[in-house]
Nucleic acid binder design. Structure first.
Length: 346
DNA sequence: AAAGCGGGGTC
DNA sequence: GACCCAGCTTT
């Protein structure tokens, strides 16, 4: 049997029930695909439910302030997805009269929509023969056909895209795309794939050659940079603190944080005071976490200290403790806020 | 072509 | 620790 037929048959028996699988509404499909970029379904599902509940149509999302969208996205990471999501919602609502583009080529023009997402929406919503190429597809095809070209190389992307475009079921592109991804997620998993029950095992290159753990090939990532973050948690005598918006490009753009001092290495209290301009107004400084919190991102390891700074003079504007939860903040700050428990100060 | 961008999970 | 996840954008 053809590979596509086998995958679709497997899919119809083994597929999970997921909310975006019961609709062809492009708003819901688009929303789910943006959320699921570089994100496992288990992690993204609660966010999808929250967005659908809060913003049932593209018009609701378009009318929301960006700050509210980022707040709902808080904790999911890759925040450019949320900013692009909101910008695209506004574009579709106010310039396209709420009508999504209906083919791959036009979908590709939307902010935050690349080859994968355009193919997914085009096939799931409009039955266009556009093959998806994601981490699951790379893995399944690399193993089954024994392709050793690195999947994160330009040549690899081209090779695999051509292959999957040839394999896709031209009569049923939507189910094929769903099938090959679900197969990769549930059967041909990165670790310990379930070869004993696999319908493709008898003709699988990696299974035959015992190369399951060597495929797919991926060139090594660079080691993450080490950084030292000192967050200044000001505590005023009227129960307010300071938050700043990260306006510059880079991580956490448009999210909020306590005033940040980044240093070339770890510093102590004495060294910290040399970095603070109005140190004469400070009454007391203490370190919240004796050991730095190591916040690990894909490309950076942040050695983070939260300094509690009590003062009776704070520059404006200040944030009442009770309002802190309204701001979208990086998860490392959210965790601190929960642990510090500002309420005891009130 | 390579770098940058999060956070959670597995082994 | 290394690697992975329904990738995209910028340099």
């Amino acid at each position: 049997m053809q590979l596509s037929k086998t995958l679709i048959s497997w899919y119809l028996v083994n597929k999970r029930e997921l909310p975006w699988r019961n609709t062809q509404n492009p708003y819901f499909i688009w929303l789910s695909e943006i959320i699921l970029q570089q994100t496992q379904i288990k992690q993204g599902l609660p966010y999808y439910e929250a967005f659908v509940s809060q913003y049932p149509t593209v018009f609701h999302l378009a009318k929301a302030p960006e700050e509210a969208v980022l707040k709902l996205w808080q904790g999911l990471g890759y925040y450019s997805r949320a900013r692009n999501l909101h910008a695209t919602a506004k574009y579709i609502a106010f310039h396209l009269n709420g009508q999504f583009p209906e083919n791959y080529k036009e979908l590709l023009k939307l902010k935050g929509v690349g080859d994968y997402t355009a193919s997914a929406i085009a096939s799931f919503c409009f039955n266009e023969v556009a093959a998806v190429l994601d981490g699951n597809v790379f893995r399944v095809l690399a193993r089954y056909y024994g392709i050793h070209t690195p999947i994160n190389s330009t040549e690899g992307k081209k090779t695999f895209k051509a292959l999957v475009s040839d394999l896709i079921d031209k009569k049923n592109p939507a189910d094929f795309n769903q099938a090959i991804m679900e197969f990769g997620a549930l059967q041909c998993t990165p670790n310990k794939p379930d070869c004993p029950t696999c319908p493709l095992a008898s003709s699988c290159y990696a299974h035959r050659k015992n190369e399951i753990n060597q495929l797919p090939v991926k060139t090594k990532a660079r080691k993450p940079a080490i950084k030292f973050f000192n967050f200044l948690v000001y505590i005023s005598d009227v129960n307010t603190t300071i938050l700043e918006k990260r306006e510059q490009k880079g991580i956490w753009q448009n999210l909020y944080q306590f005033p940040l001092i980044e240093t070339p290495k770890a510093i102590n209290k004495h060294e910290l005071l040399n970095y603070i301009a109005n140190a004469q107004d400070i009454q007391e400084v203490s370190l919240f976490n004796a050991n730095p919190i190591v916040h690990k991102l894909s490309h950076q390891h942040l050695y983070t200290k939260f300094w509690i700074i009590k003062t009776n003079k704070l520059p404006q504007p200040t944030v009442p403790f009770a309002d802190l939860e309204k701001y979208a903040v990086p998860i490392v700050i959210k965790n601190f806020m929960d642990a510090y428990n500002f309420e005891v100060e009130i």
